[in-house]
Design a protein around this nucleic acid. Structure first.
Lengths: 205, 205, 205, 205
DNA sequence: AATGAATGAGCTTTCATTCAT
DNA sequence: AATGAATGAAAGCTCATTCAT
C-alpha cells in the first residue's frame, strides 16, 4: 500500500546492502556476490538495475551525497550570515558522520583512492562539497565578513581538514566522540580565513 | 669499495617499478605481473625479496616516508622557531610533491582506503606525519608562539588540509603549480592556530 | 518427468572427469585446469559447484564409496551367515575393482598419503569399510561361527590384505586377473580368523 | 677422527632432515626450502648431492629400508625355522615402527600413493619386503612347516595386513601401543597360511 | 523483473631447479 | 663443496559479467 515508488524496492535494497558491505570491506573487496546474497536478491537483478558494479557504487554515492547536502541545506536555511551557515554546515556534517559511521566509511574511505584508478569518477562528489563551502566563503567575502582570499584553496583546506579529523576518528577511535572536537575544529577553520569569532557567537544567540 | 648495499639492486628495482605502477593504476590494480615485467625481474625474485604484495607495498611506503621525513628534517634543521619549522615543513612537502607526482599519488591516493581493509596498515605512516606536526605545534605552544590548543586535532586538520590541496591538484590539475598556492595555504594553516604571521616574516630575513 | 536431478549435469561431469584425471595423475598432480578442460566446463563452474579442489575430491570419494558399499550390501543381502557375507563381500570388492581400475586407483592410491596432510580427511572412508568387516566378524563371533578375537584388529588386517593385493595388481600387473587369486585370498583371510572353510562351502550350495 | 666417510656429513644431514620434514608434511608438501633451512645447508648443496628432490627421497627410502631390513635380518639370524623367522620379523617390524613414528609415517604414508604418479618408483622398496616374506614362506613350505600355497599372494596379504594395522595406529592413535596387538596380529597371519601355532610356541623356548 | 548457473581472464603465490660466484 | 639470488611454469582460486529461462 505504501511502497511508494513501486518497482524500486529491489534497487533500493541493493544500494542499502552495498552501503553496509562497502563500509565493512572497502570498495574493491565488496563483492557483487555478497551484496546480492545479503540483500536477498540475485545477480540477474543486480545487473538489471545497474550496468556494472562501478555504476552501482556511483549511484550509491550520489544518493548519499544528495541526502547529505540536503541535510546541510536544511540546517543552513535559517542562518543569518554566510559564516553562520559555514559553522552550521560543519556542525551538521560532523553530527551526521558521528551518527552514521557507515556513511563516513564509504564516503571518506572510498571516495579517495580506491585502487582502481577511478578516482576521477568520484570527483563530482568531492566537487559538490567544495562548491558548497566555496559559495559561502565567497558570500562572506562579498558581505565583508572576511577579507578577500583564494576561496577555492580555502575550501579545499576546509574539506581536507574536516575529512582528516573524521578519518582519524574512524581509524583510531580518537576522540571518543566527534562532538568533543567539533567546536575546536570549527574555530580553527574559521580562524584560518581570518573570521571574527566573537561576531559569530554574539549572533548565534 | 663503496658500492655498499650490493645485492640489493633487484629489491630496489622492484620497489622503484612498483612506485610507478601503483601511481599509474592504484594499489589493487597494480599487478605483481606488471611490476615484475617492467622491472625486468621475475615473479620468483619478487617473492624472494618480499613475502607478499602487501608487504612489498608497506616496504615501499616506508621507504618513501623515510625519505620524505628526512627531507623535512633537513629543511627544518636551521629554522629558528617552531613556527618557522612548521612553515618550512609545508614548503618542503609541497615542493617535493610538486616535483614527484608519483610520490604524491601513491602516498596520498593509496594511504587511505585501498579497498582491502588494510587501511589500518597504513596508519603508522599517517601517524608519522601527524606526530611531526604535533611536536612543532606543542613546541610553539610551550615557547608561547601560539596560545594553547588541541594540538592533536590541529595537526590532523593541517595534514588533511595539505593533503586535500595536493589531491585536488593531482585530480583536477588546478592550480597549475602547487607553488602558486603554497604561501596562501601556509598562511591559512598558521592563522588557524592563531599564529602571528608578522613575527614569522620578520624573522625569516 | 523422470530426469529427477536436473541441473546436476555439470557437477556430475566434473566428478566423472576428476575420477579419470586423478586415476591418471594422482591427487596432487590432478590440476583443476585439466579437470575443467576435459570435462568441457570452466573454472568458474568448478568453483561454483565446489568450494575447493579438496572438497571436490572428498565429494568424489564419498560418491565412490557410497556406490561401492551399496554394491557390497546388495551382494550380501541374501547370504545365510556372517561368514558367507564376508566371503561375498570379498568377492564383490575384488570383482568391482577388477572391472573398474580407475576406481581402484583413486580409492586405494589416494585414500592414503596424498602429500598434503589430508590423510585424516580420508579416514572416514577407510572407517566405513573397516566397520563393514568388523560388524560381520562380530556377528560371526556371536553366532559362534568363529572363536572370539580382536575383531577391530582383524578387520584392519583384512582391509590391508585386500588392498595390498589389489595394489600389487595395479602397480605390477600381477596377477593377470584379480579373479585368479580371489579364492585363495578369501581362504587365507577366513583362516586368519580361524573359520571352518568346509562349513562355508557346504552351505554355499 | 671418527667421522668415517668424510664429506658425507652434509648429505646425511639433508637426509635426516628430509625424514623429519616428510613425516611432518608428507612428500609433496615437504619443500626443498624447508629441508635446506632446517638442515642448515643450502639449495646449492642440496642439488650438489642429489639430482632432484625425487631422487633424494628415493635415496632416503633406500637408506631407511636398508636399515630396516638389516634389523630384520639380525633378528631372524638365530631363529630355528622359517616360521620362527617370520614371527620374529613381524615382532621386529612392529617394534621398530612403534619406536620411530617418523619412519612409519614416511615409509607407509608416502611409499603408497604420493600423488605424483611416482608410485612405480617406490615399487622396489615394497618388493624388498614382499620378497623377504615370500622367501621365508617358501622355505616353510619346503620344510613342510606349512602346506603349499600361493606364497606371492600370501606375502602381499601379510604386508598389507601389517601396514594397515600400523597405519590405523598412526592415523587414529588406536591401539595405544602397537605392542598390544602384535601377538594377535602374528597369530592371525600365521593362521592365514595354516601354520601350527603350538609348534611355534614350543620351540620358542 | 528476476534467477542462478556458467564463463574466463585475471589474480597472488609456490616451488623445484639453475647458475654465477 | 657450498652459497643463495634468480627463474618461470604452474598452481588454486576470485569475481565482475553474461544469458537462457
Amino acid at each position: 500500500m505504501l511502497k511508494e515508488p513501486i518497482g524500486e524496492a529491489t534497487r533500493e535494497r541493493i544500494l542499502d546492502t552495498a552501503l553496509e558491505v562497502i563500509a565493512k570491506r572497502g570498495y574493491s573487496s565488496a563483492g557483487v556476490n555478497e551484496i546480492v546474497e545479503l540483500s536477498g536478491t540475485s545477480k540477474g537483478s543486480f545487473y538489471f538495475h545497474f550496468p556494472s558494479k562501478e555504476r552501482m557504487v556511483m549511484a550509491l554515492l550520489e544518493r548519499m551525497s544528495d541526502k547529505l547536502i540536503n541535510k546541510v541545506n536544511s540546517s543552513t536555511k535559517n542562518q543569518p550570515t554566510p559564516l553562520h551557515r559555514l559553522a552550521a554546515s560543519i556542525d551538521i556534517l560532523m553530527s551526521v558522520f558521528a551518527k552514521k559511521k557507515t556513511i563516513a566509511q564509504v564516503l571518506l574511505l572510498n571516495v579517495v583512492g580506491n585502487g582502481k584508478a577511478m578516482d576521477k569518477k568520484f570527483l563530482p562528489i568531492r566537487e559538490r562539497f567544495l562548491t558548497l563551502i566555496k559559495q559561502e566563503l565567497d558570500a562572506a567575502i562579498e558581505s565583508k565578513q572576511i577579507a578577500p582570499l583564494d576561496s577555492s584553496l580555502a575550501s579545499q583546506m576546509w574539506l581536507g581538514g574536516i575529512q582528516e579529523v573524521i578519518l582519524h576518528w574512524l581509524l583510531t577511535g580518537q576522540p571518543n566522540s566527534l562532538a568533543e572536537v567539533t567546536p575546536a575544529l570549527k574555530n580553527a577553520l574559521l580562524m584560518s580565513v581570518g573570521a571574527d569569532l566573537s561576531a559569530l557567537k554574539a549572533r548565534t544567540v
